[in-house]
């Protein structure tokens, strides 16, 4: 009996030492990168930095993002510095709720716009729980910025406050954010549609970005040519599910991107896409391909 207890104690101690050893080695896993997780038909993006900061933008339609986080965050990391929820559609929010349940999220950025959907009620419940655990909820509105060491996030949309208001159109209160990591810029456009995209172009000085998350999974309604012209991205990523019932991405969007010589990555074809910031630009590759 005592021998067995001693054995268990030694094994536990060994595991503890092994765990600490693995943690120390895991800390070197932090790197500056943007990961477009293959979450099926939806968006789920992880941004990490060498300074041990992490941002998640949307969570996809199910819990697939958890595997992406498990793979791309150091294993002992149970904290997310900022969670951005672009809008409360289930293909962006369901996985975000799972992230809220599993990780300690320090700040949550969302528009606060009201919705009648079931998923919105579930999101509110999850947010309430997270606030009890000490999370801060920040309203997403033009001008708001977050400085996480070398990661800088600025909100470009919505322009006006939708806090506790119901938008007239479905995607009117879309949260669009600009990321600056070292000197490289990327724009995350959620399910931005043509009217809002055109409004964004006409009302503000959009910076040139080298990496763009194509709006609304490449739907036809999202194609605003002046939006692409203003941003002039070199690389575009479409986060979309294989054989999805909406036939995303639309042929016209694909043709336009090809015509503009924008290098295209698709999660339905290439799976998870990793992008590293390199000299004011980005270097993207499918997961599994070595940089």
């Amino acid at each position: 009996m005592s021998k067995k207890l001693f054995f268990i104690f030694v094994l536990a101690l060994w595991l503890l030492i092994l765990g600490f050893g693995l943690k120390i080695s895991a800390e070197s896993d932090w790197q500056d990168k943007v990961v477009f997780c293959d979450v099926g038909e939806g968006d789920g993006i992880l941004i990490t930095s060498k300074k041990q900061k992490s941002i998640v933008i949307d969570g996809g339609p199910d819990n697939s993002i958890l595997f992406c986080l498990g793979k791309n965050l150091p294993w002992s990391e149970r904290r997310i510095d900022l969670l951005v929820i672009s809008h409360p559609d289930s293909d962006h929010t369901r996985g975000a709720i799972e992230v809220l349940k599993r990780y300690k999220v320090l700040k949550i950025l969302f528009s606060g716009a009201l919705s009648d959907t079931q998923i919105f009620q579930e999101l509110l419940t999850a947010l309430e729980e997270e606030v009890k655990e000490g999370a801060l909820i920040e309203e997403a509105v033009l001008g708001k910025t977050f400085d996480l060491e070398n990661l800088k996030i600025s909100v470009l949309l919505p322009k006006e406050s939708f806090w506790q208001k119901k938008p007239n159109r479905d995607h009117q209160a879309m949260v669009v954010v600009l990321l600056k990591i070292n000197n490289s810029l990327a724009l995350f456009s959620g399910d931005l549609e043509k009217p809002e995209a055109e409004e964004l172009v006409s009302n503000s000085q959009l910076p040139k970005v080298s990496l763009l998350k194509v709006p609304h999974h490449g739907s036809k309604n999202s194609l605003a040519t002046n939006f692409y012209q203003a941003l002039s991205p070199q690389i575009a990523v479409i986060s979309v599910g294989k054989n999805n019932r909406y036939n995303h991405p639309h042929k016209e969007v694909l043709e336009y991107l090809t015509h503009q010589n924008i290098k295209l990555f698709r999660t339905d074809i290439q799976g998870t896409i990793n992008c590293l910031p390199v000299n004011f630009s980005w270097h993207c590759q499918a997961e599994g391909d070595k940089f």
Partner: peptide, 13 residues
């Protein structure tokens, strides 16, 4: 709690 993580993680990994 993170102590628990260190103990529980290595074997499943």
């Amino acid at each position: 709690a993170s102590l628990g993580t260190f103990i529980a993680f290595p074997l499943p990994r």
